[in-house]
Amino acid sequence: MRRILEKGGILSLSLMLVSTYSVSAVIPEMIRFYEGYGRSQVEQLISISSVAVTLIIILNPWISQILSDRASIVLGLLFLTLGGAAPVWVQDYGAVFVARLIQGAGVGLMNVCAIDMINQRFEGDERSALLGYRGSAETVGNVVLTLIVGRILGSGAEWRYCFLIYFFGAAVLLLYLLFVPNGKREKKVCRTEERTGRRMEKGGRNGYVFCGLWGGFFVGVNTCCTMRIPSLVVEKGIGTGAQSSLVLSLMMITGVFAGMAFGALKKRYSGRLQGISLCVWGLGLAVMAAAGNLIVLGLGAVIAGFANNILITTVFEGISEQFPPQAVKAATTCALVGCNLGSSASPYALNAISFINGGMSAPFVVFSAAAVAAGILKPRVPRENHSCDMA
């Protein structure tokens, strides 16, 4: 039972890791509230947290020399909770900007630890299973928080009350302190890992780069879509901001099923999994761009959400399998830096696309074409000859 509770405490950390964009449904309301500020400036209040996350992750090698993993997680959860909930009481643009930076710093402090802790304490099939469950925990947390935001907006309450969701960070902190003991378990290094280590000595740098670049692409595009879905729904006249949160939740909840299906899909398609998933992802984005009602939009969100979660999982699954133990933390850091750089760059990508076409569906068309092109051009690579399934 103690072992199960420990796993639950570790997995609970992932419930809040992607909560930054759980409040995306409030963007239309915030745009109306912050008169005098452009759309990209208001959207930046949501995405700016990713900048702080990225900076903290980059600084992680030095921070880890000062703070233990436990201290980083506790401090991170405190920052996430207090900074995330601050807009409930203070709505000044500058104050909200700073609060979102604090919230992002909190996520950054616990991000690498939440993933690396699984690699430190578990191995083999148990480790692989927990990495999959960890991704599902991220999705479950994001879905639940997004649904709560939708309910708050649907009740007619002011947008600021949606930021109360970050108080769930205090509950996660309690679970962690109660059930996750200090220290880490030593793992044996098998001959396979030794051979992998020798291989990574030659190609490891390329592996790090691929993890960061593809992680940034997958997360960045998904962030752009998440931020634009509420406005797309309103522009098309097919629903309200509150109803758009249902579409966002539908897109994210498929991540739970993607995590459950990942093992079987990996076994069946092996090195072709990413190429196929990229094409399916592009199809889902195209359906969303062409949607004329909420049902079709929801269908596209299911397809895109499933494929996107498969793609993101391949990045971290590749790290745990292809990098030697001493390189896993560095590879995880590179992947997370890429993911967060992609996320923080999303408003600028949306702004660049708006110069070509200002319609809310334009980003979905552009990203759909990019995903399909990448899926077609990506070669099939045998698992034993690549890192992060990205080469």
Rank of each mutant, 00 (worst) to 15 (best):
F262M: 11
F218M: 06
K187F: 06
L75N: 01
N60I: 00
W214G: 12
F316V: 04
I312K: 03
Y166W: 02
S68Y: 04
D92G: 14
G241A: 15
V96E: 08
N293F: 08
V365E: 05
I73F: 05
Y37D: 01
R121F: 10
E158L: 15
S346N: 04
S244T: 00
R151V: 00
G282T: 04
I27M: 14
A331W: 08
G375T: 03
A349W: 01
V144N: 01
M227T: 05
F355M: 09
V143Q: 03
Y93K: 07
E186G: 15
L174M: 09
Q322V: 02
G104V: 01
L278S: 04
S19L: 11
R2H: 13
V233S: 14
S368E: 04
G9P: 07
M360N: 09
L213P: 04
R39A: 14
R151Y: 11
I353H: 12
G255L: 09
V140H: 10
F217Y: 12
V234N: 14
T54I: 04
L232D: 05
V107H: 13
S155K: 10
R268Q: 03
I66Q: 10
G183V: 00
P379N: 11
L15Y: 05
V234T: 00
V180Y: 06
L82D: 01
M16C: 13
V107L: 14
P363I: 04
V337T: 02
S270V: 06
S244H: 09
T192I: 07
S368W: 01
Y176D: 08
K266I: 00
V18S: 13
L174T: 03
E201T: 00
L278H: 05
K378T: 01
L178A: 13
N340D: 07
A52D: 07
I353M: 14
T332G: 08
E138C: 13
E138G: 13
A370P: 05
F355K: 12
T333N: 15
I58T: 00
V26T: 07
I229Q: 09
